[in-house]
Amino acid sequence: MNALLKKEMRLSAMLLTYLFIGFGLMALLPGYPILCGVFFITLGIYQSFQNAREANDILYSTLLPVAKRDVVKGKYQFVILIELCGFTVMAMMTILRMTILADSPVYRQNVLMNANPFFLGMVLLIFGLFNVIFLGGFFKTAYSIGKPFLIYIFAAFLTIGLAETLHHIPGLSALNAFGFDHIVLQISLFLCGILIYAALTWLSYRKACTDFDKIDL
């Protein structure tokens, strides 16, 4: 583990951020918009940013013998780590729902979104939106967290609403596949989620480096 990620985890992060990874378990809830679990995980990350701002973390990090670009890298590494932990929990719950719980009546009779590879793709899309809107927005000022988080909330819930609606549209019911039904389509959508996440995070990181470099602290 590099020194900056260690610093993020030990000095900047709040315990709440780690605990909120547990919201990935929401993927098991029947009759609940399970994508909200992603929002709670990002809410946990937001708490760490709030804590870091109060602790003068950005200034401290910039004074360390590292390039300004590395300060940005450390934050991105930390956020990606938490997101991937949350994603792993959600993926495990999804596998559970696709296999031994595939025929469970509580999930079969669920009008809301099912946990399947398309759901995991949407999880990654929302994490990608968080990285672009919140993380990228934060590095424009290195102190303002409220405005980018509010914009992210709007985008996240719009995406959740859209994801919950899509499978009710005639012809799109395959999005809500159970077990291994429509697996090729499902895996393709999941792969799209991975690509979108990687692209959004990379673009956001590049822009954040440029923006942060211009800031006077």
Binding site: A3, K6, R10, L11, A55, N56, D57, Y60
Partner: peptide, 14 residues
């Protein structure tokens, strides 16, 4: 003041 709620030991260790 840096990391007001962390111990000196934690701050120095990092």
């Amino acid at each position: 003041s840096w990391y007001p709620r962390k111990t000196i030991h934690e701050i120095v260790d990092v």
